[in-house]
Amino acid sequence: MTTDVWRIGGELEVGRLGFGAMHLPTEPGPGRKNALAVARRAVELGVTLIDTAHMYGGGANEALHPYPDDLLIATKVGMARSAAGEWDHDARPEALRDQVEQALRRLRRDHIGFLQLHRIDPSVPLADQLGALRELREEGKIGHIGLSEVTVGELDEARRTTEIAGVQNRYNLLDREHEPVLAACASAGIAFLPWRPVAWGDSGAHAEVASVAAELGATATQVSLAWLLGHSPVILPIPGTADLAHLEENTAAARLRLPAAHRARLDRLAAPA
């Protein structure tokens, strides 16, 4: 797979088209066996960044070992099951530390290169949440710190406590609500990892996207991912799938270059927020 690279935190070099592991089944059985085959195939296709989280399967999604040493497994903490069994915020310093320790055991590593705060916990001061992660970094247990679903103001506030290497917000060709956050990341040299990068397939239902795809001999999904890669150099899409054919389709998007005229047509589809 050929694609541009980005250095997360100016240090961790990855291909800009990553893989989101959220959709991989975690229950034992054929589904899990296939999930691991998809993850292995992603690496074979050149993916060097896999994004997962404690929330995905209660940590079971992090159990991807073995993998190459140069593969960056980015995970997320800050969500936990409530007494009622529902997922909710929990970014108390002690909870974050416990989740990091659990992730290290599941990943079978003594260091997490890129750790993201899954959501800001409204019940805990942000400085306390990020202060705990900064302490873990100083202890050598994590490397670079990222955020997810934040505003420009929250990003600015976070950067007053610690360095931020990445932001993961919802963003795609047809949903550009977080364009201001992307612009802030680009200005600061912060990686922007859009989740739901292809609008869960909605792009294919849009006539203009379908038209561009047909003219280029590509799929709507590939056009959507190629648009993201060309929209800003800090964008690192992390499309996810549990299907091998869909994985092949996604990774092929790294080789698609949109002509200027086609890109202009796509740019007009959604006005920046």
Score class of each variant (00 low, 15 high):
189 G>E: 03
179 E>I: 01
173 L>Q: 06
161 T>G: 05
183 A>M: 14
184 A>V: 02
174 L>Q: 02
177 E>W: 13
195 W>P: 07
174 L>M: 04
200 W>N: 10
167 V>D: 04
167 V>I: 10
177 E>R: 12
186 A>P: 05
169 N>V: 04
178 H>F: 09
179 E>Q: 06
206 H>L: 08
185 C>P: 10
194 P>H: 10
160 R>F: 09
199 A>G: 06
190 I>S: 04
181 V>I: 13
167 V>Q: 10
192 F>Y: 15
187 S>W: 12
193 L>C: 12
186 A>Y: 06
171 Y>T: 13
171 Y>K: 04
193 L>Q: 05
186 A>Q: 08
198 V>A: 06
199 A>S: 11
191 A>M: 07
205 A>N: 15
167 V>C: 09
178 H>S: 04
208 E>I: 03
197 P>E: 03
197 P>H: 02
192 F>R: 03
177 E>Y: 13
162 T>W: 10
206 H>D: 12
185 C>V: 09
201 G>K: 11
200 W>R: 15
186 A>L: 10
166 G>R: 00
206 H>R: 11
166 G>A: 13
202 D>M: 15
172 N>Q: 04
192 F>P: 00
199 A>C: 11
203 S>P: 07
182 L>H: 02
205 A>G: 02
205 A>T: 15
190 I>V: 13
162 T>N: 08
195 W>F: 13
160 R>S: 11
171 Y>S: 05
205 A>M: 12
174 L>E: 03
205 A>L: 13
198 V>W: 03
202 D>C: 08
203 S>W: 09
172 N>W: 10
186 A>G: 07
186 A>H: 11
178 H>C: 11
188 A>I: 13
170 R>K: 10
185 C>S: 02
171 Y>W: 07
197 P>T: 14
163 E>D: 08
180 P>E: 04
163 E>Q: 15
203 S>H: 05
164 I>A: 05
187 S>D: 14
168 Q>C: 14
194 P>L: 05
182 L>M: 07
200 W>F: 12
175 D>L: 13
204 G>M: 03
208 E>N: 07
163 E>N: 05
183 A>G: 06
165 A>I: 08
200 W>S: 14
194 P>G: 14
193 L>S: 10
173 L>C: 05
170 R>A: 05
185 C>T: 05
191 A>I: 02
174 L>Y: 02
175 D>A: 14
188 A>L: 06
163 E>G: 09
181 V>W: 01
203 S>T: 15
199 A>L: 03
202 D>V: 09
169 N>Q: 07
166 G>W: 01
161 T>C: 09
175 D>H: 14
173 L>N: 04
181 V>N: 02
180 P>H: 07
204 G>E: 10
162 T>I: 08
189 G>K: 08
193 L>M: 12
207 A>I: 14
167 V>P: 05
199 A>R: 02
207 A>Y: 11
188 A>K: 02
165 A>K: 00
198 V>S: 01
183 A>L: 12
171 Y>N: 06
197 P>Y: 07
177 E>N: 10
173 L>R: 01
161 T>Q: 04
203 S>A: 15
164 I>P: 00
162 T>M: 05
186 A>V: 06
170 R>M: 13
